[in-house]
Each structure stands twice: as C-alpha cells, then as structure tokens.
Design a protein around this nucleic acid. Sequence first.
DNA 1: TGTACATCAGTGAACGCGCGTTCACTGATGTAC
DNA 2: TGTACATCAGTGAACGCGCGTTCACTGATGTAC
Lengths: 202, 202
Amino acid sequence: MPPRRRNTYHHGDLRRAVIDAALQAIREQGSPDFSLRALARRVGVAPSAPYRHFEDKRALLAAIAAEGFRLLADGLRKAAGTARPGSLDHLRELGVAYVRFAARHPAHFRIMFRPELADKTPYPELLDAASDSFDVLTSGIRAAQESGVVRPEETGRLVRASWGMVHGIAALAVAGQFGRSRAKIEAIARSASEALIRGLEA
Amino acid sequence: MPPRRRNTYHHGDLRRAVIDAALQAIREQGSPDFSLRALARRVGVAPSAPYRHFEDKRALLAAIAAEGFRLLADGLRKAAGTARPGSLDHLRELGVAYVRFAARHPAHFRIMFRPELADKTPYPELLDAASDSFDVLTSGIRAAQESGVVRPEETGRLVRASWGMVHGIAALAVAGQFGRSRAKIEAIARSASEALIRGLEA
DNA sequence: TGTACATCAGTGAACGCGCGTTCACTGATGTAC
DNA sequence: TGTACATCAGTGAACGCGCGTTCACTGATGTAC
C-alpha cells in the first residue's frame, strides 16, 4: 500500500486516521502488533507526526482500548434493553452481545486485552470505560439474583466466571476458530449463553 | 541477570535451556514476547547458538507450544481418570483441569495461543499435540452424550462452546484477573465448570 | 588402549533493518484589533 | 475587510538500539580400527 498523498499540509483529523490505520493493520495481519512508523506510513505522514496526538505508542493503544470498551458497554446496554432487567433472558442477551461485539470489532477486542494494558491506572479514560463495561455485567447478574432467578452465590465470583466464559467464546471467535460466518458465531454464542444461564439458575 | 558462565565449551542441553529461558522470561515480564538474542544472553551463549537447535524463532515457539499441548492433554486425561467416563463428573473434572493447567503453566499457555501459531501445519508435532488435546475434550463430551446425560445437540458445537468457556476462565486467570491464589482460581474454575455442565445437561 | 578423523555444537563478527523517539524547523490556521 | 501575530500540526533528519539471521571458524566429542 503506497502512502496516500495529501494536498493539504494539515491532515484534518490525524488522530482518528492513526487509530483507523491501526485497526486496519490488525485486521490485515491478523496480529495485534504494529509499529507507529508503519501507521504513519499508511496514513502518509512523517513518522513523528503521530506524537502530536499521542504521548507515545502505549498511549495510542490505550486510546484504542478505551474506544473499544465504550463500544462494548454500548453494545451490552443496547442488547440488554431488549429484555426485562433481572430476567434470565436479560443475561442471555448480555452474553450474546459480548461475543457479538468481539465478532464485529475484532481489532478493538484484541487491543483491549493486550498485556501491556493490564495496568490501566496511567489511563483514566481507559480505566473508566473498562469499569463501566464490567459494571453492566455485574449489575445484570445482581438484578437477576435480586429477582431470585440466579442463585445467591457471591456476585463477584459469578460475574468473573460468566465474564470468563463469554470472553473465552469471544476470543476463540476472534481467533477464527469458529469460522468466518457471523451467523454461525452468533449461534455458538447463543448456545454458550444458554448453557451459561442454566448454570447460573437458582 | 548476568549471563551464566559455563566451564564446558559444549552446553549439554542447550535446547532445553533455551526453552526454559523463554518460559522464565515470560513469567518475569508478564508478556509472551522475547527475543532470541535475549534468551541466548540468559543462557550465556552466543546469539547464534540456538540456531543449532531451532530453525528459527517461530520454530522455537512451536516447540514450546507443542510441549504445552502435551502437558495439557496429560493433565486432562489424568483429571478425567478420577471420574467415570460418560458422566457429568467426568466433564466437570475436564473443565477444572483445563484451568488448572493454565494456572500451573501460564507461560506455556500464552505461547500456545499466540496468533502466529494459529496455522499449525508447518509444525506436525504441534499439530498432533493440539489435536490430541482437542480430542480428549471431544470424546469426553461425546461419551456423556452417549450415556444420555448431555443433550444430543451437534457434538462439535458443544465442544467449541465448552472449550471456549473454560478457555476464557483460564485466560483471565493467567492474566491475573482472579488474583494469585491457586485455591481461589481453582474455586472459580469449579464454579464455572459446574455452571457449564448444568448448561450441557440433557 | 591409542590414534585419526568425522561430526557435532559451539563462537563471534557482521549484515541490513526497522523501530521509538527527539528536535529544530516551517507551513497553515485562528484570533485580536 | 485587512493585517500582525500567536498557536497549532505538520516535516524530515538524526539518535541509538536491539533484533533475526548468516557465515566462516574452532573446540569438544564420538567412532572405527
């Protein structure tokens, strides 16, 4: 891919362009690794230009991850909205939505869980977005416990176990283990979420 | 860490030493990335020495991953041996054993699922070991279906969903999301496996 | 048991490379009057 | 509406670095007789 030619000196929205280039690169190479220089090349800009928008490479990763967590939280809330809070249906939809998010935004997904972002404290925006997503899951399960359809075991443990399970399905889907078909992935997600809520049932 | 001094010109078992150095490096840095040169330094050997034992860097990764899959298959078989094949107990033990493997061998675990090893065809040893592990899970579920305790849905789908779920728990455990305590991780694994088999139940 | 020699498993210098980041700079844009 | 000037968002050269891999080499080991 030859560097794109700009006709303006200023780019317009280099920040966005760099993020998009990163996502694109991940999709193309199938690996969540890229160099900042390569992104600059893709965008058609000097290697130093991205530093106007991101303190360093890790800050770029953090920005993308934060965006991903916001998309995830949105997706979860939207899907959960289709069922009554506190119901098992609600939980099933949360599970399916988690996997759907990963299938739709695989590049975000891969960055969100990179080990160098395990410690999110240097990036408050990322920290907020991640906790928000986690909160959606937690309050879904807590509501179901309160309405008596999920067993009253310690909420945190159930959340982690459930999160882990849907996360695993999502990760395997992103890794291509379930093939490319959205429909098939959704079906597996549905089976798994079904199994999951039966396991949670009171 | 200063390079270790050898007193013999020949190392003895450099192949093993390089693999161990890689595992050690992963444990220390918390990231499954390392350079071949750094491993050579750790072992106290010239940068070119590992090439006597591994065609290139990827071949080293493949060798470690293959070892991991063999350990996994062993662990699964051993754990499953404690319960009657075809029973739900058998499946629960498989699930717990999967997570236990990850908790015990986190460095192997991380390498096994690196994206550059997604295509295993260049490494028959790895391919064999991976399919063997997968087979243990598959035949566990099939046996439970045959004895009528698991619903007769398409086996492949159930295997993928189950595998995904335990894999997710394992991945989060390795990422440190459940804390460091082996006992706690085992407890979460047990909850999750319990939930999982309830979901599979006929 | 001793010797000649082939093979094995290291060495160390060198290669070309792309990376992350810094820095002094400059062209474009926005603002005050 | 026009001008002066501050600020913003780029450039491009340069830095030091560590990497993966190759190559001609050599010391150690194993084998045949």
